[in-house]
Deep mutational scan, measured.
Amino acid sequence: EETVVIALYDYQTNDPQELALRRNEEYCLLDSSEIHWWRVQDRNGHEGYVPSSYLVEKS
């Protein structure tokens, strides 16, 4: 079962390993094994790492 997370803030990045976030957008959580950086996928299928503190699990 996939976990959906919501971005609390915008996040901009130039790092190809990371993914930009848009506030209030939903993302699919792929990997939360790292404490500070979670791997997520956006609705267009793009994947990357984002700061975990910018996300909240959708209830």
Score class of each variant (00 low, 15 high):
6 I>R: 08
53 S>H: 15
32 S>C: 10
56 V>K: 12
51 P>E: 02
4 V>H: 08
17 Q>L: 10
9 Y>Q: 15
16 P>D: 12
28 C>N: 11
31 D>W: 02
15 D>N: 15
34 E>F: 10
6 I>Q: 06
56 V>W: 06
55 L>W: 01
34 E>Y: 09
23 R>F: 07
55 L>N: 02
54 Y>G: 04
27 Y>N: 02
33 S>G: 10
30 L>S: 03
28 C>T: 13
43 R>L: 11
14 N>C: 13
15 D>C: 09
12 Q>M: 07
7 A>N: 00
51 P>M: 03
13 T>K: 11
1 E>K: 14
46 H>W: 05
11 Y>V: 02
44 N>C: 11
53 S>C: 06
23 R>S: 09
32 S>Q: 12
8 L>S: 09
29 L>R: 04
5 V>T: 04
2 E>Q: 09
56 V>C: 06
33 S>C: 11
5 V>A: 07
57 E>F: 09
17 Q>T: 11
16 P>Q: 10
59 S>W: 13
40 V>A: 03
56 V>S: 11
12 Q>E: 14
49 Y>G: 04
33 S>H: 12
29 L>C: 08
25 E>H: 12
21 L>T: 04
40 V>I: 07
28 C>M: 13
5 V>I: 04
58 K>V: 11
56 V>Q: 12
1 E>G: 06
22 R>P: 00
8 L>E: 05
4 V>D: 07
16 P>M: 09
42 D>F: 01
47 E>Q: 14
32 S>R: 13
17 Q>E: 14
8 L>G: 03
33 S>N: 08
32 S>L: 04
46 H>N: 14
2 E>K: 15
16 P>Y: 04
33 S>W: 03
16 P>V: 10
12 Q>R: 11
52 S>T: 08
43 R>E: 13
24 N>V: 01
42 D>S: 07
19 L>K: 02
53 S>M: 07
12 Q>G: 13
34 E>A: 14
39 R>N: 04
9 Y>V: 10
15 D>V: 13
33 S>P: 03
29 L>Y: 01
36 H>V: 07
59 S>E: 15
44 N>M: 12
22 R>E: 14
19 L>N: 01
54 Y>C: 10
54 Y>T: 03
30 L>W: 01
47 E>F: 04
16 P>H: 12
29 L>W: 00
49 Y>K: 15
10 D>Y: 03
42 D>I: 00
18 E>P: 07
12 Q>A: 14
9 Y>I: 08
56 V>G: 07
55 L>H: 01
50 V>R: 01
36 H>T: 13
28 C>P: 03
14 N>R: 11
50 V>P: 02
33 S>M: 07
40 V>E: 00
1 E>I: 14
2 E>L: 10
37 W>F: 15
30 L>H: 03
29 L>V: 11
10 D>L: 00
49 Y>E: 05
25 E>L: 05
58 K>E: 05
56 V>F: 09
40 V>P: 00
31 D>F: 01
45 G>W: 02
8 L>F: 05
16 P>A: 13
3 T>D: 09
11 Y>H: 10
59 S>H: 05
54 Y>N: 04
44 N>S: 14
18 E>A: 12
44 N>F: 08
17 Q>H: 06
52 S>M: 06
27 Y>G: 00
23 R>K: 15
28 C>R: 12
14 N>D: 15
8 L>K: 15
16 P>W: 04
26 E>W: 03
51 P>V: 01
3 T>R: 13
17 Q>N: 13
51 P>T: 00
48 G>P: 00
4 V>P: 07
30 L>C: 05
16 P>K: 10
30 L>M: 12
4 V>N: 08
